[in-house]
Design a binder for these strands. Structure first.
Lengths: 191, 191
DNA sequence: AGTTTTGTACTGACCGGTCAGTCTAAATGT
DNA sequence: ACATTTAGACTGACCGGTCAGTACAAAACT
């Protein structure tokens, strides 16, 4: 089997198990078993459990961030926020387990991973931030808006709502969820 | 030492350790040590590590939900949402570790505790839901608003923003954060 | 051509250590 | 008296990590 194929199988297995029970409870034995690979292969490919987790996070966050940036590319500032929110919903819909893992690990405190949290903030939340900043620069949003906090708020809101969506109403169309979220963000709530 | 005092010391110690590294990595030995209590006391009081965790969650979520409900009590529907958001921020500011643990456990998938997630949704998010519903009933919000999703969105947004606040800008006044959040929710963002 | 070497990917038994949970006899508090 | 806590020794299961060895194909040598 090719090296990259093996690594991806391990990523998938690890993401699922960590999303279910957390990092510590996902044993290397079980991850290897689910990936259909011997335990030693994990250490041949990554060197340690921690290193595998770091590689997995980098791989996923990079893709997540790229999906968000691609969604906004080329659009008018007016449309970018909606597009980014839609892209975040879509990505989470397709990579639900990874999103759960992300939510749990990003806001962990003392843990072993200051690196992980920073990565997520730079790549994923950063993409949202850039869109908000573009809207401010275009004179579309108030110039005194706290851009970082707004980006974090939008990202967190979409992330938690998306996971509720997948958990409680998985059959509901993405557009429904997207519409409600955008209504909330645009203040179209009041009568 | 009284039974309840012992339990609370154990709760505090367990919450901190679990928030730092997750449930599996927080050993009973270390929890007992941090609480200044013998290991046997844990088993005398709770019977098992899982049972302690369940009791801890019930205790914390109950208090969290009560804080949110108390904040809204007696206010006009117009003011309730702001009060609930403020109460959520304040509670997280005072019980940061518990909030981290809550975030990680609520949106976990397969885990050992579907019970935990349901509890949080009923008690904590439920308090937000009631406030949103009251606003709808008072004709203050659109009647076609998806109340459950809006409540979940507000709760998740405030939770993630609050933890970013504590992590990245702990010295910032609560009122600042509150104002930005309410601006976002009221659509006062556009120029 | 046939043989030997080399590099890469993977295997699974095994080791030292940690963990949840048990047990007990004595102490402490009310 | 009775409930609660202590201190610590102990067990068996499981965990992260190691390592000698297998498989196999491309390359190098004769």
């Amino acid at each position: 089997m090719s090296r990259t194929a093996t690594r991806e199988r391990l990523f998938t297995a690890a993401i699922e198990l960590i999303a279910e029970r957390g990092f510590a409870a996902a044993s290397v034995d079980r991850i290897a078993e689910r990936a259909g690979v011997a335990k030693g292969t994990v250490y041949y490919n990554f060197g340690s459990k921690n290193a595998m987790f770091t590689a997995l996070l980098e791989y996923g966050v990079e893709r997540f961030g790229a999906a968000l940036r691609d969604a906004a590319a080329g659009l008018a500032p007016l449309d970018q926020l909606g597009a980014v929110v839609r892209a975040e919903l879509a990505f989470i819909g397709e990579h639900e387990s990874f999103a759960r893992l992300l939510l749990a690990e990003t806001w962990r405190s003392g843990g072993d991973w200051p690196h992980a949290a920073r990565l997520i903030r730079e790549r994923a939340i950063g993409a949202v931030r850039d869109v908000v900043q573009a809207a401010v620069d275009a004179g579309e949003l108030r110039t005194d808006l706290d851009v970082d906090m707004a980006a974090s708020a939008v990202f967190g809101m979409v992330l938690t709502v998306a996971l509720d969506w997948r958990t409680l109403q998985p059959d509901r169309p993405l557009d429904d969820v997207h519409a409600t979220l955008m209504d909330l963000l645009r203040g179209r709530i009041a009568t």
